[in-house]
Amino acid sequence: MTTQTQSRMGATMNAPSALPAVPVKMQARDVKVFYGAKQALKGINLDIQENRVMALIGPSGCGKSTFLRCLNRMNDTIENCRVEGRLTIDGDDIYGRDIDPVQLRARVGMVFQKPNPFPKSIYDNIAYGPRIHGMASHRDEMDEVVQKSLQRAGLWNEVKDRLREPGTGLSGGQQQRLCIARAIAVSPDVILMDEPCSALDPIATAHIEELIDELRENYTIVIVTHNMQQAARVSQKTAFFHLGDMVECDDTEEIFTNPRDERTQGYITGRYG
């Protein structure tokens, strides 16, 4: 690990952990997921704190992405997928009767592994969410939402002169920031990120990581990553998943320096992965 990242990690660790009680944003109690007859998650318990970055790490196929997709019910779009247990956001049951997946997904946004801008203009990509949710009543308001979202995603200066050009024409890193801006535009409380940097080069990755750190002020972020350094750099809390179990969840520093479970230790020291 370079000194630079170490120092940044130190900085992120100090401030929030010093506060006594951080409110819990989302909570999982005994969450089990089945794909047909196959069980993908075996009873997950996890608290996700407000305005923190929670990293989910673990070897591939361990269920971390599955868990992430439960948090905004993206699993609903997969046939044969069944979720048991209790998942809450601000105390509301996510799979409860009075929560609607459409409403939920506006509250819990998602950024995917591969940048997936719509084949529309940059402007329309950002405006898509606010439009369907009726968040801007007229043009000026929409312009403002678009500008603000792009600014927050750190993309405004790069694209402000070509908002009418297709979003697919941007570079990979820009596309992914566009997707983050698109998610921000509907003002979610939580942003889920499924390996957001795995398709990007190191420079673009650094950009996104900085962005995640800035977004933490206003949003709760859950990020799935294969890259342990990345988890150490951007998160305050880390949960280690293994074969459908949540093995261990603690402050990121704690997990990486002093893991309690030997499976965690094995994974972070690179014995398997």
Partner: peptide, 13 residues
């Protein structure tokens, strides 16, 4: 499918 996922992820029906 990724385009559909992107849209569902934003809360589109």
């Amino acid at each position: 499918q990724s385009l559909r996922d992107g849209s569902y992820g934003l809360g589109a029906t």
